[in-house]
């Protein structure tokens, strides 16, 4: 990730090919187990939630990890997308996939429109202040949805077509890959460098001519767009939306995935999102102690992430890489 050499070295091509292969391999394996009925029903029903959480975690990773701004309103954007998409597909009468596509586009766009409206004034704040304001924003969205008539209020919005179940895994998977691809590419692009520059030292960034406000808003809007997409998939996976599910706990759940994955590490976010979605299900056999074990595993993983043991592994790997690069140079 830190390679600064211009042009594409063979090693970099190799990496791209490897990523494509991994993507295809994961898809092939998933399709085989789904079509072959090799998974239990419990595990099949967890596939799409995993995909949704990956999208949410990766999009939040852009904000928290790369822009370096702590936001606690991600569930708010997710709910805007979910409600917008669901209301639209309820209204439309088309083939499911077409409805879903339109719904997702609308959900994402409306979520990003809200992000612009909220982002412009709010992003003047930094650190803790921003966290509190976005937390407030998420709660406001929830209260507004709660009191509106056409969203179903506290009763929730039901009767949403369940188009995005594991049967439509291909569709959802494409969007997951798109999310990861777009955000990973953005982060490694010129704009992405600007975003990380803002994180590292915004005075220096401003001094070299980076428009801090613009890049902050851009990251905010893109992140909200993908949260909106994830929301639409959620709505069409579950079939009913309730405002109570999009409270700050949901935002924090997503944040935990990002933090656990290592701030500013997309791969980490993906892995953490999958683990944290699977964990409560895998622990079902522990019955009453499920949530207790879940928390303990979280703590243990956090301790491991910051332990000298892990640092040693990372250091070793980095040294090896450096040696390889040096060899190539020779």
């Amino acid at each position: 990730m830190n390679k600064t050499s211009a042009g594409k070295t063979p090693a970099k091509y190799g990496k791209i090919v490897l990523n494509i292969l991994i993507t295809l391999a994961v898809y092939a394996v998933m399709m085989v187990v789904i079509q072959g009925g090799m998974l239990s029903r419990q595990m099949t029903s967890i596939i799409i939630p995993c995909c949704i959480n990956v999208m949410l975690a990766v999009s939040l990773c852009l904000l928290v990890g790369y822009l370096g701004e702590l936001t606690l309103g991600h569930a708010g954007f997710m709910s805007i997308g979910a409600y917008a998409g669901a209301l639209l597909t309820n209204y439309l009468d088309m083939p499911p996939v077409a409805e879903l596509l339109i719904g997702m586009l609308a959900g994402g766009i409306i979520a990003s429109v809200f992000a612009v409206v909220i982002g412009l004034p709010v992003l003047r704040l930094k650190g803790d202040y921003l966290a509190i304001v976005t937390l407030g924003f998420g709660e406001i969205i929830r209260s507004v949805i709660n009191s509106l008539e056409f969203t179903g209020g506290a009763k929730g919005l039901s009767g949403i077509g369940t188009y995005a179940t594991y049967k439509n895994f291909t569709f959802v998977y494409i969007f997951v890959i798109l999310t990861i691809l777009l955000i990973a590419n953005l982060v490694h692009s010129r704009h992405g460098r600007a975003i990380t520059a803002v994180r590292d030292n915004y005075i220096a960034a401003e001094a070299i001519g980076i428009h801090v406000g613009r890049f902050k808003t851009m990251a905010f809007v893109i992140s909200a767009f993908f949260a909106g997409l994830a929301g639409v998939i959620y709505a069409h996976n579950v079939g009913i939306l309730k405002p109570a599910n999009f409270d700050y706990n949901k935002s924090i759940e997503i944040l935990v995935m990002v933090v656990l994955g290592g701030m500013g590490n997309i791969k980490g976010s993906i892995i953490a999102a999958i683990i944290l979605t699977l964990l409560p299900e895998v622990l079902r056999s522990a019955a009453d102690y499920r949530m207790l074990l879940y928390s303990i595993v979280l703590i243990a993983m956090m301790l491991f992430n910051n332990s000298r043991f892990k640092l040693a592994i990372v250091e070793k790997r980095n040294l090896k890489k450096a040696a390889e690069i040096q060899k190539e140079g020779e």
Binding site: R41, Q42, I46, Y234, I240, P280
Partner: peptide, 20 residues
């Protein structure tokens, strides 16, 4: 008896678990 945490997505997983 499976836990659904009173949320919709977890209820689907709980249902599939009891069916399993």
């Amino acid at each position: 008896f499976e836990d659904d945490e009173a949320t919709e997505d977890k209820a689907i997983q709980a249902y599939n678990t009891v069916m399993d």
